[in-house]
């Protein structure tokens, strides 16, 4: 019995085979230590486009993770930034080991993801750990309305206290408002329904 002749030219697959997904980067060093110490609090590890890793931390475990990072030597809160994506808010932290030589220098980045579906964004404040977080958190509250739980004095940083809305949110649409500087406290004046002052 003759074997069926094999086709001379193998039919090209309709679609090229999907490229194998890049292997998920594995945390190393202090990142791995933190992740092992807090398996429940740390959701994932990613590497940003600049080649530095970032740990995504659950909002209610941020303080313990940051406290441990501080104990590991990350004593300087370098940056605290927030951002608004379509479905979630994020808060971005970078801590530094203050160093005299390049060998001692290290950076640790944390990220908190706050889904918009979960209501108003709330995250633990780091003021008790890093007093310098004070103004940074106030700025992010001012711009994004993120509540930093445990902050002693969560007021607006740049805008006057009477301002409506948090302007850096992508869906910020508030009536026109302007600030009248007054003795005592500044007054915010905004338009009424008809659009007049």
């Amino acid at each position: 019995m003759a074997a069926a002749p094999a086709p001379a030219v193998p039919a090209a697959p309709a679609t090229p085979p999907a490229a194998p997904a890049a292997p998920k980067p594995k945390p190393r060093g202090d990142y791995a230590m933190l992740q092992d110490a807090h398996p429940s609090g740390i959701a994932s590890y990613d590497v940003l486009e600049d080649g530095v890793g970032v740990l995504t931390v659950a909002p209610d475990e941020l303080f313990t993770v940051a406290a441990e990072a501080k104990a590991m030597g990350y004593r300087l809160l370098s940056v605290l930034s927030a951002y608004d994506r379509t479905d979630h808010f994020g808060v971005f932290y970078a801590f530094l080991k203050v160093a005299d030589t390049p060998a001692q220098f290290a950076e640790l980045r944390l990220r908190v993801v706050l889904p918009k579906a979960a209501g108003e964004p709330k995250v633990q404040s780091l003021v008790d750990l890093h007093p310098s977080a004070d103004w940074h958190e106030r700025e992010m509250f001012d711009m994004y309305g993120i509540q930093f739980l445990g902050h002693p004095d969560l007021r607006r940083m740049f805008l006057p206290d009477g301002w409506t809305g948090h302007p850096m949110r992508k869906d910020y649409k508030e009536p026109e408002q302007f600030v009248a500087l007054r003795e005592g406290e500044d007054v915010v004046v905004r338009t009424n329904e008809e659009g007049s002052w």
């Binding site: 940056v79 930034s81 951002y83 608004d84 994506r85 971005f92 310098s132 004070d134 103004w135 700025e139």
Partner: peptide, 14 residues
């Protein structure tokens, strides 16, 4: 989508 500037004066003025 987002640009945040970590300003040295802001952090030092605190």
């Amino acid at each position: 989508s987002r640009v945040h500037v970590r300003a040295p004066s802001f952090a030092n003025l605190q």
